[in-house]
Structures are given as structure tokens and as C-alpha cells.
Design a protein around this nucleic acid. Sequence first.
DNA 1: AAGCTCGCCAACCGCGTCTGA
DNA 2: GTCAGACGCGGTTGGCGAGCT
Length: 248
Amino acid sequence: MGRSPCCDKIGVKKGPWTPEEDIILVTYIQQHGPGNWRAVPAHTGLRRCSKSCRLRWTNYLRPGIRRGNFSDKEEKLIVHLQALLGNRWAAIASYLPERTDNDIKNYWNTHLKKKFGKVGEDGAGAVSSDSHQSMSKGVGKQPSSSHSGEFNSVLTRSQTMSSSSAAAAAVTYASSAENISRLLQGWMRNTETPAPSGRVSATRSSSESTQLSSNNTPVTPPVAAELPDDNRSKRPGGSGRSPFGREV
DNA sequence: AAGCTCGCCAACCGCGTCTGA
DNA sequence: GTCAGACGCGGTTGGCGAGCT
């Protein structure tokens, strides 16, 4: 029912984002804020579908995200949360404000799945399938108190960070643009070679830049500890698919 | 030195859900 | 009450680079 046709349109560009596109997108969001993704391609002239814009913003351009180098603590937390929540990457990501769901998903699939995918069932995994169901309304809310150890520390950190998010929001858009300009500078230096496919240059440098911004102003999406997952996804016009977070 | 294989990661696709008309 | 539009999520794929033979 009512599936978005946006990506079926002809003339919609696919593939890696170029630094220019990044800049356009960031500039637009800086002015108008995230949301209303449908309007983004229309207003910016980007030949990208709204989904693609949202994804790009969410996973790479959004200020305050950190990429690569998962710490031991983060890794443990992911494993733990995965056992608790299953593959609810968005919910898991809400406990790791600096990480994106896509990043966590990739990290899990490439690194952790092998290590813990089957093995971790004794510890955290013991809850897996059952909790998957019983978690239904708990997803995105606070994890059960029995797992408080690490959660507490992380949640505390998250809360601390998120407390300033509103005030920081404006600043972070700026820092994001700053990041992009740095990104562009770096890219300009290499323009002898044809514009890089965005993959290496754009993403690498954007990862650097997001680190910068995270140092600058750690911005957090609404954190689960503060906002239930449902709230997190319930934006005006948005839904978020939350099969477990939903009352049926 | 060249070719092959594997791993990683960015991006795409399809589906589910919510909101407004 | 129904339908269409829009958004978000999770699974999957494709391209690139690194390592190995």
C-alpha cells in the first residue's frame, strides 16, 4: 500500500555520492533542517531520490557520528544489544548515539557475526529468540535492569551527550557544513584524477570530518534512554517500522 | 608480476507503518 | 473508512581494495 515510487523515476542518479552532492545536501539541511525528504531533491536539484538523500544524511553527513574503529566497549555493547533486541539495528543504534544503524549492521555482519553469531548464545544470546518476542514493547526503551552494568555507563554517557543536543543542533549543522568544506578542499587537491567515485574520497574524508564534528559538538539523536524507540521514529509524517515497538 | 579470492563498506531495494486528504 | 503519499528499517548487493597464491 502506498509505496514510494521515488526510486522508480527515471533520471534519478544512483551510486556513490560526490562531494558536490554532499555539499548541496548539507547546505539544504543546514537551512531547512532534516525532514521533508521529498522536498530535498526538488529544492536542491539533486538527482537523487528522497530515500537516498535521507540515507546519505543519516549515515554520513549527519553531525556527531563517528565511523570506524569500534571500541571494545562498543563492540560488547553491540553484541549484548543484538542478543537482546535481535537485528533491530535502529534500536541498537539508539544506544550508540555516535553510530549509525547501517554502520552497526555492517560491523555486526562483517566482524561480530563470525565471532558471536553462534557462540554468544550462552551469555547474552541466551535471551535471544524469546526476548525477541517479549521485547516487543521494550525495544528502544531501557534495557532490562539485569543488564544494567554496561548499559548504565553507556546510557549515562548518552544522556549526558543528548542533554545538550537541542542547543547543539544549530551549531552542529554549521559544523557539518564546515566538515563538508574541508571535505571539498581535500577533494579539490586530488582533482587531477577524475572526480573520485565518492566512495573513497567522500566517505573517507567525511568520516574524518564527522570525527571532527563529534569532537566539536557531540550531537545525539534522541537516545533510547531518554526517548522510547517509538518516539524516536515517530516524527511527523514518518513512521518508522517498529514491529516490536508497536502495540498490536 | 599477474591473477584470483576474500573482506569490507556504501548504497540500493522492498516492505511495513503512519499520517493526512 | 479508505487510499495514497511519505518515511524509516532491515536485508541484500555491488564495487573496490588488500592479501594470497
